[in-house]
Design a protein around this nucleic acid. Structure first.
Lengths: 192, 192
DNA sequence: TCGCCATAAGTAAACACTCGATTACATTAT
DNA sequence: ATAATGTAATCGAGTGTTTACTTATGGCGA
């Protein structure tokens, strides 16, 4: 056989870049095939169809990032530390693989419905941390869901502004400011 | 003629609801025609094509909302007052016409590139207000672009959580909390 | 070590279908 | 009468997917 897993990765990469560049609907199987130096039919040796390709691309990385986020959070023992670590995780992810980050942002609305309860999910990770903060009495006023929305909004909209050229430079350089903004919104003192 | 402008509105409404429900690409001209009790060909009497229909739907409401936002901001003379008024404007918009709100959120990424410099734009309105605050020395630390991203993130992600069922009830009821969050993130005292 | 072969991997062409758009024609209101 | 609306059928292009076929490779018996 000729390099099974290798071409599968080649297809995934090509699809990723095509979807981000032209949109998921506009990026067709023909384009993906051409970009991967492969024929259309061969793609179907590795994926059941376009939906499956998109889903694998999304689900693996989505839950993978959730795991990363959870590990980062676990290494810290203060609430502010956990938040800071997660924010930094987002920034690093963006800088490491902007295409992948953009893809997840792009297709999340279409795929989020298919996410099962038990699948690791970045939103639930963050919400869990904030829930802990509330139960410990460290966060006043806001509910965990509300607070999660705020933190996600601050970080993701900043990333979105980067994507559309309203902000420039690496996201990592903004991590400090973003962390502070997140703590401020929760009325938490920056403890570091 | 049989009711020119009326059917045009009928088409726009039907398209809006279809796009929000099924996505812009999945919502076809045939479906729009059926939902408007009209034939496909008739749609082309009112719109040059699908792109034009989407663009009219987007541009009119996008710049329309920008104008609303600007008026709201103009009626206030403190920075905190302006921010609060705009946040409230967002919430009211969401509650008044959730479908339209969702549509703008849905298609913005595809349409934003076509927005010309001189077209009224909600982002620039907010950014203008924050720029004023920075020049007056009321906001420290953050740039106008950064701060705009944060405020948009807080409000829009909260709306997104509503859309996906993570938060419920009217957005207007959250206006106070959102305003406070926005002021906190800018390190501004709530003056009202 | 050699040759065979099951099987994984890839090809090229066609499939059935949907899409947005256009056309020639009919209806309606001024 | 005439311009604005609306209809029904059709067009060509493009879609994801399937098919029948070909090629390469790792393992296994002789």
């Amino acid at each position: 056989m000729r390099s099974g897993e290798a071409t599968k990765e080649k297809i995934k990469r090509a699809a990723l870049e095509l979807f981000v560049q032209k949109g998921v609907d506009a990026g067709g199987m023909r384009d993906i095939a051409t970009a991967s130096n492969i024929t259309e039919g061969a793609i179907y040796r590795h994926f059941k169809g376009k939906d499956d390709l998109i889903w694998q691309l999304f689900a693996d990385n989505f839950s993978g990032f959730a795991t990363t986020l959870n590990d980062l959070q676990n290494e810290q023992n203060t609430l502010a530390g956990k938040i800071d670590a997660m924010v930094r995780g987002f920034c690093r992810f963006y800088d490491d693989d902007e295409t992948l980050f953009r893809f997840l942002l792009l297709v999340q609305h279409g795929q989020l419905a298919k996410v099962s309860e038990d699948m690791q999910n970045p939103i639930d990770i963050v919400q869990g941390v904030l829930q802990g903060g509330i139960e410990a009495g460290e966060i006043g006023g806001a509910s965990a869901q509300e607070a999660t929305a705020w933190l996600f909004g601050i970080v993701l909209q900043t990333a979105t502004f980067h994507i559309y050229g309203r902000l420039s430079g690496p996201m990592t350089k903004r991590a400090d400011a973003l962390s502070q903004a997140c703590l401020a919104v929760l009325a938490l003192p920056a403890d570091r």
